[in-house]
């Protein structure tokens, strides 16, 4: 399994590893080359802005559709 990524990811970003959590309760965003990402808002591997969703793109506020994970 991958290392936890410390930056908060978008509430809607999903990938298999994100369904598991670290011992401290964070979702795991494995940036591995086999990770398949989905945006839960669109149900597709792209955001509502029509651009690909992935662990690199979908955190921080630079992406207009970003929503903070609660």
């Amino acid at each position: 399994m991958a290392q936890p990524n410390q930056t908060a990811h978008c509430l809607y970003l999903r990938t298999k590893s994100a369904y598991f959590r670290t011992a401290s309760g964070e979702r795991i965003f494995d940036e591995s080359s086999t990770a398949c990402y989905t945006c839960l808002k669109t149900l597709r591997p792209l955001g509502p802005d029509g651009m690909p969703a992935d662990a690199q793109a979908c955190h921080g506020r630079e992406r207009g559709c970003f929503e903070e994970d609660r």
Binding site: S33, A35, Y37
Partner: peptide, 12 residues
């Protein structure tokens, strides 16, 4: 190609 998605790596 993962189609419109990612995840095609094979280096494991």
């Amino acid at each position: 190609s993962g189609g419109i998605g990612a995840g095609s790596g094979s280096a494991g």
